[in-house]
């Protein structure tokens, strides 16, 4: 089977600083893959390269969807989203002054085709399309369990609900691959548990592959099929949760060198 995401020797330099060094990574269809590593290891930079916020200094990023393999390097963020990658941020970046429904509708934007003229003259096609955007958005909110908040402003939602809304908005773009940057950050235990049910559920019902960055190791070990560990921009380990827990290089990166060893 062809991987959905294939990253080959990706390198990202900022001046003299090498934030990502020759990183290889694969995400298979319907797989949940975790990317872990100490703070500053280059995980978010990696997400920024994939989503087109940064242009990588070297290496290739391929997305394979329905048998078509496309290179994503150098595409603008909105084009990457159109190709089928969506993401969330570690600090919540909702459109705070817009309603919950509107936040999700924006995500549908990239799957619509009417332009400015349609917006002005409101022809039949545009109106039908907009009605469909609203009904699709409702469906997504129901699925994520946010339907009781539809007309609230995003900034008035409780914290856990804001996190879920970020995921709902990402799903609205109809991705094949979902990148989650620390989805459990700041959540309590109960919220985290609900979150991992949600993530697994998205994978199972929507057939979406998931790549996540997360510091909550319990969550990572519970839901990931495979884990990549990076440190100083380099991959130091790869494997299933059990293998990773026993890997000496990982233990060293997280706990530091044992002075007696």
């Amino acid at each position: 089977m062809e991987p959905v995401l294939e990253v080959n020797s990706l390198t990202m330099d900022f001046g003299g600083l090498r934030a990502i060094d020759q990183l290889n990574l694969r995400v298979m269809p319907s797989e949940i893959v975790a990317l872990i590593g100490p703070n500053g290891a280059g995980k978010t930079t990696f997400f920024n390269c994939i989503t087109g916020i940064y242009t990588p200094s070297a290496g290739d990023i391929f997305l394979s969807v329905n048998g078509r393999r496309e290179r994503l390097n150098g595409l603008k963020p909105n084009r990457v989203t159109q190709k089928g990658i969506a993401r969330t941020f570690q600090n919540i970046r909702l459109f705070q002054n817009m309603t919950v429904l509107e936040n999700v509708m924006i995500g549908r934007h990239c799957r619509t085709s009417s332009g400015i003229l349609g917006a002005i003259f409101r022809d039949r096609r545009t109106r039908l399309e907009e009605e469909k955007v609203v009904s699709d958005s409702y469906k997504i909110l129901e699925k994520i369990g946010l339907d009781r908040f539809v007309n609230e402003l995003a900034m008035n939602l409780p914290y856990g609900a804001q996190r879920r809304l970020e995921i709902a908005r990402a799903l609205a773009t109809e991705p094949f691959l979902l990148l989650l940057d620390e989805p459990a950050a700041g959540m309590n235990q109960k919220e985290t548990q609900e979150l991992d049910e949600l993530i697994v559920n998205i994978r199972d019902t929507e057939n979406i592959s998931i790549l996540l960055i997360e510091h909550d190791m319990k969550l990572v070990m519970r839901i990931s099929d495979r884990i990549y560990v990076v440190d100083y921009g380099k991959k130091i380990a790869r494997g299933n949760p059990l293998e990773i827990q026993r890997n000496p290089a990982v233990i060293k990166a997280y706990l530091g060198e044992d002075p007696d060893a």
Binding site: T81, M98, E102, V133
Partner: peptide, 28 residues
């Protein structure tokens, strides 16, 4: 236009957070 149409919503989203708007597929 700004309140109800898709392009209007895209405008408001862009005004609030340009990068995030691009990441949900808005052509800035």
């Amino acid at each position: 236009m700004i309140k109800f149409t898709i392009i209007g919503k895209a405008m408001r989203a862009t005004a609030q957070d340009r990068i995030m708007a691009a990441l949900v597929g808005v052509d800035i």
